[in-house]
Simulated assay, not measured.
Amino acid sequence: MNHPFYQKKQKEQKKIQLIVCCYAFLLFIIALIIAWQSNIYFIAFFVFYLLLTIIAPFIDVPNNKKSGKLIYYSNFFIVEKEKNGVLQIHGGTLLDYYFVLNFKWNSKQRTNYIIQQYLEGLVNLIEEYEKNNVRQIRFTGTTYILNKNTAKKLGFTITKTNSLQLMLLVLNYFNVLISNSIAKGNFSFPNVTKSISFEAKLDDLVKKKASIKALSNKLKHRG
């Protein structure tokens, strides 16, 4: 994995995290002043929540990666540590969108790269568990990026999105909004209400591995 953030030394990573926190603190102080002068105290609470959701990926994700709670299988494909035979799949976070994507790329190039990294990460995940012969494992996730047909073609079964999963997406909407806007190259509102949940057993994904790998290679060579 050639992730620009994780290729930096620990000292540099900590410095970036400190800078992010300092900027967030400064913006919160400004919000407090505005709230106090206008007597609209909701402004301070709203900005605090907004900043918290935005800076969280820059702090939590690297720390959880270091502790082993999160595992990167590609720059935009992250998996939670196995729990009770279930692996929770996640797409890239705001940290990944900011550090990995080339801002000189156009919208199509960025989108192609993100999808290619999803596919490459999925192949890496399949091959690791296939190699270790761990068959009794289930993969689950929720996404607003893939549609139902694409998910099915990859070997997943569509499941009902529960209220908790949808609530987490809504609570992190501003984080998702910024990530989506970076991917599109302009201000772009994602429709999280159209998110889908999916699951699959290893054998289901193994059957689709060749086609997933072929599509990943096709997108990689497209550039």
Rank of each mutant, 00 (worst) to 15 (best):
K194M: 04
F198K: 00
N180A: 03
N84S: 13
A151E: 04
K194A: 06
T142S: 08
I196F: 09
Q117T: 00
K8T: 02
K213N: 06
I212D: 01
L177R: 03
K14T: 07
F25V: 15
K213R: 08
L154A: 00
Y113K: 02
F99R: 07
I115A: 02
I30T: 13
F189W: 10
I71C: 06
K81M: 03
I158N: 00
E82C: 01
N106Q: 04
N2H: 03
G91I: 03
Q165R: 09
N63H: 14
S107K: 14
Q88F: 12
G155T: 08
T93V: 06
L125V: 01
K8R: 12
L18I: 09
I16A: 10
G85T: 02
L154T: 00
I78P: 10
I59K: 05
G91L: 05
I196T: 05
L154M: 11
K65D: 04
N2F: 08
L171H: 03
I137F: 08
I16W: 10
F103D: 12
K194Q: 06
T53L: 09
N102W: 13
V170H: 08
I71R: 06
E12A: 14
G68D: 08
I59S: 09
Q136V: 02
V61Y: 08
F45G: 14
N133K: 07
N64R: 15
Q17W: 08
N63R: 15
K201D: 13
L70M: 07
T53G: 01
I19V: 15
K209F: 02
K83N: 13
F77E: 08
G185R: 07
Y72M: 06
Q88N: 11
I126V: 06
I33A: 12
K220M: 05
E128L: 10
Y129R: 00
L27F: 15
Q165W: 04
L166K: 15
L94N: 06
V79K: 00
P4C: 03
D96T: 02
A31W: 06
